[in-house]
């Protein structure tokens, strides 16, 4: 008796939503030290290609490929972040934008490795691989009352959910520690932070590479959720989209970016006409947010108010 209401399409949308949430988290981390990166699509690209190529060409197990993809993207983050730190916000934004373009040019041109503009096909899909492995162990999805495609979509969704939850928990905790306070101090007043003994360069590179690493992780997971990647997935538009998540949702708190990513992924799903005008809407949204609510929909004072309201309701 299959569970009829479990719609693989909805699960797939949910999976993309989770990947976008990870991307939202990645830009939040960099922004939380006051750095604007337009290179997160590039880091995502590194993560995705690393994972995809390691599994298709070297036969590495998927989790190892994903981990290496994230680590490689994080290391690239150190390499880009370190020199860019001598630069003020605008220079950093453009240098990272340039970095993203260079990465994409490499992906398009290094055909023997990356498959060029066509991309990498037949990347093992997490859900299918899991199903195959379980089948070897004698499990059939029917045992759990699921059709195979339901099982595949559900397992991808659950894996992504677990990873995303872990990442969010990690950075929510980090926010409330000495390191998180240093990040916030740097964002609010770099000079004062330095005067208080915070090694600004160290923390900026740290945040930058953490952001790069999460982008890479999102890219690697993306590769193994779709089974096909191409340079088109990691254009400048993707970088802008990632930025919109944080700017719309609110870059002052991690949950803002999470909300932004979730809301802007679901919006085109809910409103068909929106999806045709999605990018125009993003553009308009950026301008309007900067004018009327530069801190984004969700900001710490709002969270505090919600918290207080809940506390008052409780007794």
């Amino acid at each position: 008796m299959p569970v009829e209401w479990l719609n693989p399409y909805h699960l797939q949308v949910g999976s993309f939503l989770l990947i976008n949430v990870l991307l939202g988290v990645s830009i939040y981390i960099t922004l939380s030290t006051g750095q604007l990166s337009l290179g997160n699509a590039g880091f995502m690209c590194i993560g995705a290609y690393t994972a995809a190529l390691l599994s298709t060409k070297c036969g590495l197990p998927i989790p190892a490929g994903i981990a290496l993809g994230a680590v490689l993207a994080g290391s690239a983050g150190v390499l880009v972040g370190l020199p860019s730190l001598r630069l003020s916000g605008v220079y950093l934004a453009i240098a990272t934008l340039g970095f993203g373009e260079v990465i994409r040019a490499v992906a398009v041109n290094w055909e023997t490795l990356t498959g060029g503009a066509v991309g990498v096909a037949a990347v093992p899909q997490m859900g299918r691989v899991l199903l195959a492995n379980l089948a070897d162990a004698g499990f059939a999805p029917g045992d759990a009352g699921l059709r195979p495609n339901q099982f595949i979509a559900l397992s991808v969704f659950l894996i992504l959910l677990a990873v995303t939850a872990l990442v969010i928990a990690f950075f929510l905790r980090l926010d409330r520690t000495r390191v998180g306070r240093a990040y916030a101090a740097i964002r609010l007043d770099e000079k004062a932070a330095e005067a208080m003994g915070i090694p600004v360069t160290y923390y900026k590179v740290l945040a930058f590479s953490q952001g790069a690493m999460v982008s890479g992780l999102a890219g690697a997971l993306f590769a193994h959720s779709t089974s096909y990647i191409s340079p088109e997935d990691f254009t400048y538009h993707r970088a802008v989209e990632i930025l919109v998540y944080a700017v719309f949702g609110g870059s002052g708190h991690l949950l803002g970016s999470v909300f932004g990513a979730a809301a802007l992924t679901l919006l085109p799903e809910a409103l068909r006409f929106v999806s045709d005008y999605r990018h125009m809407l993003y553009g308009l949204l950026l301008v309007l947010m900067m004018i009327y609510r530069p801190q984004g929909v969700i900001d710490p004072p709002l969270l505090r108010r919600l918290h207080r309201a809940r506390a008052e309701e409780a007794p």
Partner: peptide
């Protein structure tokens, strides 16, 4: 030059930065 959007308490806590040492992993 306070960290204007931080709370009163957090401002002082930031000042403690160079007399404490927990990093990312120990914090998380």
């Amino acid at each position: 030059r306070l960290f204007s959007a931080m709370s009163v308490e957090e401002n002082v806590m930031v000042g403690r930065h160079c007399r404490s040492r927990a990093g990312v992993w120990r914090g998380v």
